[in-house]
Amino acid sequence: MQIIKNRLLPFFVAFFLLMPFLFISKLDLMVVVNTSRTPFFDVFFAKSSALGNAITVAFVIFLVLLFRLKWLAVFLLGFITQVVIVLLLKKGLFAGELRPYLFFRMNGLLDSVVMIEGLKMRYVNTFPSGHTATIFFLVSFFALLARNRVASWVLLCVGLTVGFSRIYLFQHWYADVYFGMLFGTFSSIIAYLVVKKYPKQWHTKQIRIDFRGAIKETQNALRQLF
């Protein structure tokens, strides 16, 4: 547990400092963020939000293969845990909960905000934010792997950027994002503790990828073609 406290301390600090915002009117928060929009941040947060999708996960899996299989086990278990939690809540307990856009539209409040032109809006299944849960699982996983407090702060900032983007883009309420942060982070913690408690012999092994050989084979194949 001491390792988790040391490496994820920035995350715990962020959770504590951001908790009071849960008690502020969710409508007021959305309006305040919306009135702070700029053309630059419209593009920036639209691009940032994409970090919480499946493509990022696939890329990370490739990176994890470069480390001991223990970390691959942690990653897969944590990711599955995060997905199950999100789906149980989003599609189960809180299925049909209105996202900000539809809530504002149904209550005649759309005139108080301005939408980003061309952005596809989601209507329901708002809790929790899947993008936020995914990115916080990823950044907390790498914080555990990095063993560096500075890296943990940088990774936290990446996660917060993606989380905030979901509010900025009018896709989620603040509570959706906050609990997505919690679910994602604690999924990596649970996976780390489980793998540590039940070590396997294959955890110490590592997949060897011969990049130089692969490059040479590719070059040879290209020479034969051209």
Rank of each mutant, 00 (worst) to 15 (best):
Q2D: 14
K5R: 11
L9C: 10
F12W: 14
A14H: 02
F15V: 08
F15D: 07
L17R: 07
L17W: 13
L17N: 12
P20D: 06
P20Q: 12
P20I: 11
P20L: 10
L22K: 03
K26L: 14
K26D: 12
L27A: 08
L27S: 10
D28K: 15
L29Y: 11
V32G: 15
V32S: 13
V33N: 05
V33K: 05
V33T: 08
S36A: 06
F40P: 05
A46P: 04
A46Y: 02
K47H: 15
S48G: 11
A50D: 15
G52F: 05
N53G: 14
N53T: 14
A54L: 08
T56F: 09
T56D: 04
V57F: 08
A58R: 06
F59G: 13
F59E: 10
F59M: 12
I61M: 10
I61F: 10
F62H: 11
V64E: 01
F67N: 04
K70E: 00
K70I: 02
W71K: 00
L72Q: 01
L72G: 03
A73I: 06
V74R: 00
G78P: 09
G78A: 02
T81D: 07
V83G: 15
V84C: 07
V86C: 14
V86A: 09
L87V: 10
L87H: 11
L88N: 11
L88P: 08
K90C: 04
K90N: 04
G92E: 02
L93V: 07
F94Q: 09
F94L: 12
L98E: 08
P100V: 05
Y101V: 00
Y101S: 03
M106L: 13
M106K: 10
L109Q: 11
L109H: 03
L109E: 08
S112G: 06
E117K: 15
G118K: 09
L119A: 10
L119C: 13
K120R: 10
R122G: 12
T126N: 14
P128G: 05
S129D: 02
G130C: 04
T134A: 04
T134D: 07
F137V: 07
V139P: 00
A143Q: 05
A143V: 08
L145M: 11
N148V: 00
A151E: 02
S152P: 01
W153G: 04
V154P: 01
L155Q: 03
L156M: 01
C157K: 10
L160S: 12
L160P: 03
T161F: 08
G163C: 06
G163F: 01
R166M: 04
L169C: 03
F170V: 01
Y174E: 04
F179C: 11
M181V: 07
M181S: 14
L182R: 03
F183P: 01
G184L: 03
T185N: 15
T185F: 06
S187P: 06
S187I: 09
I189Q: 01
A191F: 06
K196Q: 12
K197A: 14
Q201P: 12
H203Y: 00
T204W: 00
K205T: 13
R208F: 09
F211C: 15
R212G: 09
R212A: 14
A214V: 13
E217D: 13
T218W: 08
Q219C: 13
Q219I: 15
A221S: 12
R223W: 14
R223F: 14
L225A: 11
